[in-house]
Amino acid sequence: MLIGYARVSSIGQDLTVQEEALRAAGCEQIYSEKKSGRQAEDREALHDAMKAARTGDIIVVSRLDRFARSTQDLHNLLAALEAKGVGFRCLAQSGVDTTTPTGKLTLSILGAVAAFETDLRAERQAEGIACARQEGRYKGRGPSIDYAKVKRLHGQGISPTEIASLLGVGRTSVYRALAA
């Protein structure tokens, strides 16, 4: 059985294109999620797909970067699939198919390239942020809580722990606001 896995990184992105491609490829079950791909252990739908797969099944993804973002993750995931007797196939990179020796080699090479691209993207982002800071265009993330509100609540005799609970923030943030 072919089992599809689709992932996008953010809530605003759409899974439709990936899901349609997986259905067209013959996937009987499709597991989808909107989650960052940085760490495989945080992706519940991926774990569900792998859990559902039985010996002889194949996990199918539209693109390699939807499955793993680092060579370490890629090798760990593939080892887990191999231990279960489950294959892996990638639609966009048609040579990637762990049911063949050439596919295994291709997969390793593409995994290294994907990891390299991730590192380059992070470098470019850091350079862009540094440049924007220098030009005064990047101020960083704004405060997550209203300092004046924290101080007003504290002035009313409400404890930092209660303020944190009321505002849905950590106590450390409350103490930081009170010290400011």
Rank of each mutant, 00 (worst) to 15 (best):
K139Q: 13
L105W: 12
G56M: 10
E28Q: 06
D57H: 02
D146E: 14
Q125F: 14
D57L: 04
I145S: 14
R176T: 07
K139I: 11
L15E: 00
R89F: 13
K51H: 13
A80H: 04
L78K: 05
R66E: 03
A179L: 03
F116S: 08
T16D: 01
A130E: 10
S32C: 05
A6F: 01
G37D: 01
S108C: 10
L22R: 00
T118D: 15
L167T: 03
A21Y: 04
G170F: 09
I58V: 12
G128S: 15
Y147W: 15
L78W: 08
D65E: 02
R176A: 11
C90H: 06
A126W: 13
A53F: 12
L22P: 00
I129Y: 06
L107T: 05
V86H: 02
S70G: 09
L74F: 13
R54M: 15
L78Q: 07
A92G: 00
G142W: 05
I129A: 08
I58F: 06
D97M: 09
H154K: 05
S9N: 01
S32P: 00
I163S: 00
S70I: 04
Y31P: 00
L166W: 10
D73L: 03
R152I: 11
E162R: 10
H75L: 15
E123R: 01
A126Y: 10
R54L: 15
D73A: 05
V113C: 10
F67E: 02
I109H: 12
R54V: 15
T55K: 08
G157Y: 02
L2T: 03
A6N: 03
A92L: 03
G155L: 07
I163G: 00
A114D: 09
R54W: 15
V113G: 07
A83Y: 14
T161H: 14
A80K: 04
Y31A: 05
